[in-house]
């Protein structure tokens, strides 16, 4: 039977991997502060996930970049870009943008709320499966930034005075904030909470 650190009344130094007794406060090998679980993990994860959800609304409604060609202003949203590529038969690139900018953030938030639900209601029997989702969102977290980098490059490249220019739209800021919030939410979440059995009150 596998025992957890809490059951054995131990505390792990997450920096160097040494085990200590619950009364210890500082790791004597690497000098890091010891915490049995990340502080306020659930509250932080929840608040950052909610903020991210809020930022996603303007991120999807406002234009992410504004193309001006021959005096004509053409603001484009994220979804507008995806539709444009599908209309013009560029399915590959349309799919890449859709996955990175829309599917990944939506998936990440759903998983975060699912993880919170499992910990909050103490469904430890689901921990193993939830762990897989947790690893997926930690891995794909940074890829949502793709569209922001694309906008940076497009704005830098397309500056042809009267002929054609591209400028940043407000959605870029909202979207970048939403991505940063989900990344912080994922980082604040302590996956060990999924496995900790709590006594029923």
């Amino acid at each position: 039977m596998i025992k957890s650190d809490i059951e054995a009344q131990k505390i792990l130094c997450t920096h160097c991997g040494l085990l200590f007794d619950e009364v210890d406060e500082v790791c004597n090998r690497c000098g890091a502060d010891l915490h049995q679980r990340k502080d306020n993990s659930l509250v932080k994860t929840f608040l950052f996930a909610i903020s991210s959800l809020i930022f996603l609304i303007p991120a999807n409604l406002l234009p992410i970049m504004v193309v001006t060609s021959l005096g004509n202003k053409d603001p484009g949203t994220i979804m507008g870009g995806v539709i444009y590529f599908f209309h013009h038969g560029a399915y590959g690139i349309g799919a890449v943008i859709f996955i990175a900018s829309i599917a990944v953030p939506a998936f990440k938030l759903s998983v975060l709320f699912y993880l919170l639900y499992i910990v909050y209601w103490n469904k430890t029997q689901k921990a193993y499966g939830a762990m897989k989702y947790y690893r997926i969102i930690s891995f794909i977290g940074k890829w949502s930034m793709l569209d922001i980098f694309v906008v940076a490059l497009m704005v830098a490249m397309v500056q042809f005075k009267n002929l054609a220019t591209i400028n940043t739209g407000e959605a870029a800021l909202a979207f970048a904030l939403a991505v940063v919030m989900t990344m912080i939410a994922t980082e604040s979440f302590d996956p060990r909470l999924l496995w900790d059995k709590r006594e029923k009150k």
Partner: peptide, 15 residues
């Protein structure tokens, strides 16, 4: 058994 898994907290032997 001289370390624990950083992701689930199980006590494991130090590799």
């Amino acid at each position: 058994m001289d370390t624990a898994c950083k992701e689930c907290g199980a006590l494991v032997a130090q590799p």
